[in-house]
Design a protein around this nucleic acid. Structure first.
Lengths: 217, 217
DNA sequence: ACTCATATTTGAACACGTTCAAATATGAGG
DNA sequence: CCTCATATTTGAACGTGTTCAAATATGAGT
């Protein structure tokens, strides 16, 4: 049937694009270059992918899977929220490392609300849920106050987005500053979660959760 | 002398660009359109401004001045951190309102590390300091624990950047959700600052400050 | 007034992402 | 095998930001 050949061509374009994005970076991965390398015409590439962003979105999706896989490996045998959070975050940004030379291009094409790659947008719902699941894995088996438990993965993901943003700008060698940030932030978050049982702190956390709910609707 | 005429032309291009950006938005404000409207050639526009981003940076700078002016007006007569923070933040995003239809374009051209408009980058140092000064104004005359005082403006600016990011994506009518977020966040921050005197909370805040310092170097 | 180095201006040109009408291939129904 | 609607492919074209060599204007030093 036609679907088969079509599917093959689409996949050829996609794999070519992903490969070029990884090896040559965002800027040099031109739609024309992708088409040429894949041996199809420019128009054909656009027949399967409406925009370059749509191809970058695929890369983003793959990177999230890589991040989660790396995090899960790193989580094995780790106990305690602080430790688990640390290793998951380190593994996450390490999985992102091949894309650091993208510089802002990744972020730039990711953040505009109308683009497909926007991590908060509809098109990346699936990837976002996958990313949030990383932090569901992280808190799995740790002791978290019940009133906080269900919301924590999403909150941790939000913090992770902040860390990734920091990472994008981090040009220190091997992104040392990002790793410093992760160690510190993980320890802080764990302590905050522990403190969230205390009568002085609990109302504050509850208020934050209520605000989050109010703001999302 | 030559500097005069040159300065005039540069200013003509700039003012034309700012006007068009405000009225027609980012996408429709083409370098060609700017040049045509200003009555100069395309090349001339580029002689004075190396990129479109550089012109957007000027708009960003102006917007920061507007934000600060609006915040200062709103701050008059307000007492208490929560209140002052609220009115300053509301005034800030309200001053940004004319640019909301920029959508992601503003952010997109602002966030890539290499571009001029990046609020964390070197090119916008001046604008960033101006923005941070807003929050120095906010805490002026309020009671803040001494160990926290000097770092607080920058921390509040960071929180504000988060709010602006939220605002970019906020398509609720009149950005109601952003204003809800501001009210809630301001109240929370004020409570957290108050709590930061307590022996249980203080070490955590101190740890956060230490991390911030460590990560910046 | 003249010279000439420098400042400014110009418009063509480039590569890019994207669109589109037209050409071609495909395959189900006869 | 033929027909023809539909799926796919093509390459030219558009408008964009940006670059650049060439043309022109300017003004200080003589």
């Amino acid at each position: 049937m036609a679907g088969d050949k079509s599917e093959q061509t689409k996949d050829l374009v996609l794999q070519t694009a992903l490969g070029m994005l990884r090896t040559r970076g965002y800027a040099k991965t031109t739609m024309r270059a992708i088409a040429a390398e894949a041996g199809v015409s420019l128009g054909s590439a656009y027949y399967y992918f409406a925009s370059k962003d749509e191809l970058v979105l695929e890369l983003y999706r793959e990177s999230v899977l890589e991040q989660r896989a790396a995090a899960n490996t790193a989580l094995a045998g780790r106990k305690g929220l602080s430790d688990r959070l640390k290793v998951a975050l380190h593994a996450g940004v390490q999985a992102l490392n091949p894309y650091h030379h993208f510089g802002g291009a990744f972020i730039a094409s990711a953040l505009p609300p109308h683009t497909a790659v926007n991590p908060f947008g509809a098109a990346s719902t699936q990837a976002r849920e996958e990313a949030i699941a990383i932090f569901a894995d992280v808190i799995d088996g740790t002791k978290i106050p019940a009133y906080l438990r269900s919301q924590l993965p999403e909150l941790l993901w939000l913090a992770y987005m902040g860390i990734v943003l920091f990472w994008v700008y981090d040009h220190s060698e091997d992104q040392r500053r990002t790793h410093t940030l992760i160690d510190g932030a993980a320890a802080l978050i764990a302590k905050l979660v522990a403190l969230s049982r205390l009568p002085v702190v609990k109302p504050l956390v509850e208020e934050a959760l209520a605000l989050k709910a109010r703001v999302q609707s």
